[in-house]
Design a protein around this nucleic acid. Structure first.
Length: 587
RNA sequence: GCCGGCGUAGCUCAGUGGUAGAGCAGCUGAUUUGUAAUCAGCUGGUCGGGGGUUCAAGUCCCUCCGCCGGCUCCA
């Protein structure tokens, strides 16, 4: 029952609580607001904090801002910096503050948020002043390197019912070099954007006539997915899971029992009526797995049951939040449910963490951080069970050796959970695996097992997803590898490049030979220079190119060029051996 | 959903009221090539859909669809 956040921050490298940098950025936000107020009339201010990778400031003003306005604002900011205006802190009474903020309705509301007894401070530079806790740099002259990046709408306090403000996002660093590095990283992220690469490498598409957020997997994307799924299945069997397949639709009654119709209806596709019953497309797999659990009387001797499914679900996600493969409406979860006794839960959690860590390392994600979310105020289920589950999660985390943070009260209403975040090749963090206790569904469906004592007991139920959604994971993987998939995942592992027409037959024979060995191979039939063929193969990010000329045929060898440009001349048998080893090792 | 931007050939894009363009890709032909682009010719578009303004609309207006940026967070 977990929902996944879609985006990594662009720039994990520069994150982390660097107070100096935060202060600098916050001051830059003030200078930007000051510049905006100098240029435009009737500007209402909201807030301007620093963020993980920069800062923003929210304005309500008649003028519609566009990126074309940035140069003028930046020029005005540069002037303010040149003026080297000191940031002055002024503490005032609430009444004085109200007077100073006359006409600034958002600020006045923000002022009301400040608890009685807490100091009310303003920061002033030149004629511009702003309700602000601080701290700030000494003077505007301290600002060195900043850039405005984007403008977008943003609800006041993030609420849809509130007015929409205009938010200018920017970033700032202590020097131009770091700013340059950051901007370069944004460029790098754009280059490896999975939507761009998905088109260039012919991996997947979406179609207006089908509907937003519904993915079409092209042959190359489908091949990669199939390899991922094969690996996933194999490892699940190896780790003591059984696989399930369940229907895509279910009657209203089922979703009534599960609670989805009461609490999740707006996230579901509208029902279709068949034989006077409403059928809903599934947004989750859990109720089906539960039905299978309930299809028999379960003994404590049967537990734990670990059941996994690549279950395709559909959810109505708001149109505005859809994003490539990362946030879609139809997706396949690598969903699993573990049913176990209280005595078993800790070992089960440990195993899931170990399994999950293994999977991430296989895909080349080395840096993993865990987040433990505990009981929120509004929660269902026996507090003693919450306690046991939370303790189990935490001790499993300790045993795993993973670094972790605790989000007190951050759990779902139905159980505590562990989320794993991984860092990709350019340092961005993504929330991936979830291990989620559920104290809700077992009650709703009245799940039980017969214990040693001959009595009925409620099993523990844990939802667990490693990838979350195959679509989203695939999108992240494309960006992580920048489209250059390792040999074990590459849809086309080898491309044979005949030097001229004279080698066409030999090349075709080589393709047949390699294909027999389960190698994913194609050949370039076109006439043209070898340089062009190499270029095409490079752009398609094929791991190995085999150049075949008269020399190689004569000597019984192939000229192997890999994606990095490294070359060697070896026998075909040696090449096959080498490739198979790489695939075996998932290198 | 909301605010803003955008939608022109398979792809990347130019074209701001007066006869729809380029490069790449594709096709055909020539070339037979030694490690990131051989040359030439050709094909390809109801300019996202619908409606309107105008003598005339890719261009202006309305509307729908889709895409992009964003919508908790130290006042």
């Amino acid at each position: 029952m977990t929902r996944y956040r879609c985006k990594g921050t662009v720039c994990g490298l520069f994150m982390k609580n660097d107070l100096q940098l935060e202060t600098l950025r916050h001051s830059t936000a003030h200078v930007m607001a000051a510049a905006v107020c100098r240029i435009y009339d009737n500007v209402l201010l909201d807030i301007g904090p620093s963020t993980d990778d920069g800062f923003y400031y929210d304005f309500d003003m008649p003028q519609r801002l566009t990126p074309d306005d940035f140069p003028a604002i930046e020029a005005e900011m540069a002037k303010i910096v040149a003026e080297d205006l000191p940031f002055e802190r002024i503490e005032v009474s609430r009444d004085e503050a109200t007077k100073m903020l006359a006409g600034q309705k958002y600020k006045i509301e923000r002022l009301a948020d400040i608890p009685e007894g807490e100091a009310i401070s303003f920061y002033k530079c030149g004629t511009f002043f702003d309700l602000c806790r601080g701290p700030h740099v000494e003077s505007t002259g301290k600002l060195r390197a900043f850039k405005l990046l984007s403008v977008a709408g943003s609800y006041y306090r993030g609420k849809e019912t509130n007015p929409m403000l205009q938010r200018i996002n920017g970033t700032a660093f202590t020097n131009d070099k770091q700013l340059g590095l950051y901007l370069k990283q944004i460029e790098e992220a754009k280059l490896r954007d999975h939507r761009k690469l998905g088109k260039e490498l012919d991996l997947f598409s979406m179609h207006e006539e089908v509907g937003p957020g519904l993915i079409h997997w092209h042959p190359k994307g489908a091949r990669i997915r199939s390899l991922i799924e094969d690996f996933w299945r194999q490892e699940h069997f190896r780790n003591g899971y059984e696989l399930l397949y369940t229907p895509h639709v279910g009657k209203a009654n089922l979703w009534q029992t599960s609670g989805h119709l009461d609490f999740y209806k707006e996230g579901m596709y509208a029902p279709m009526e068949i034989d006077k019953s409403d059928y809903y497309v599934k947004p989750m797999n859990c109720p089906f797995h539960i039905n299978i659990y309930k299809s028999d009387i379960r003994s404590y001797r049967d537990l734990p049951l670990r059941w996994a499914e690549l279950g395709t679900v559909y959810r109505y996600e708001k149109a505005g939040v859809l994003h490539g493969l990362l946030r879609v409406r139809g997706f396949t979860q690598d969903d699993a449910h573990i049913f176990c006794t209280p005595e078993q839960i800790e070992d089960e959690i440990k195993e899931v963490l170990r399994f999950s860590t293994f999977i991430w390392k296989t895909f080349g994600f080395e840096s993993i951080t865990a987040y433990l979310s505990t009981r929120p105020e509004k929660a269902v289920g026996d507090p003693a069970r919450w306690e046991q589950a939370t303790v189990s999660l935490e001790s499993a985390l300790k045993a795993s050796g993973l670094p972790y943070e605790v989000d007190e009260g951050g759990g779902a209403f139905y159980g505590p959970k562990i989320d794993l975040k991984i860092k990709d090749a350019i340092g961005r963090e993504w929330q991936m695996s979830t291990i989620q206790f559920d104290f809700n569904l077992p009650d709703r469906f009245d799940l039980s097992y017969i214990g040693e004592d001959g009595e009925k007991h409620r099993p523990y139920m844990v939802h667990r997803a490693l990838f979350g959604s195959i679509e989203r994971f695939f999108g992240i993987l494309v960006e992580h590898y920048s489209g250059a998939f390792p040999a074990w995942l590459a849809p086309e592992q080898v491309r044979v490049l005949p030097l001229s027409e004279d080698q066409l037959d030999a090349a075709a024979d080589m393709v047949v030979e390699l294909r027999k060995q389960d190698i994913r191979v194609t050949m370039d039939h076109k006439s043209g220079k070898i340089g062009a063929k190499i270029r095409n193969a490079q752009m398609d990010k094929v791991p190995y190119m085999l150049v075949l000329g008269a020399k190689e045929i004569e000597a019984g060898t192939v000229a192997v060029r890999d994606r990095t440009g490294a070359q060697e001349v070896i026998t075909l048998a040696d090449f096959v051996e080498k490739l198979k080893t790489a695939v075996q090792d998932k290198a």
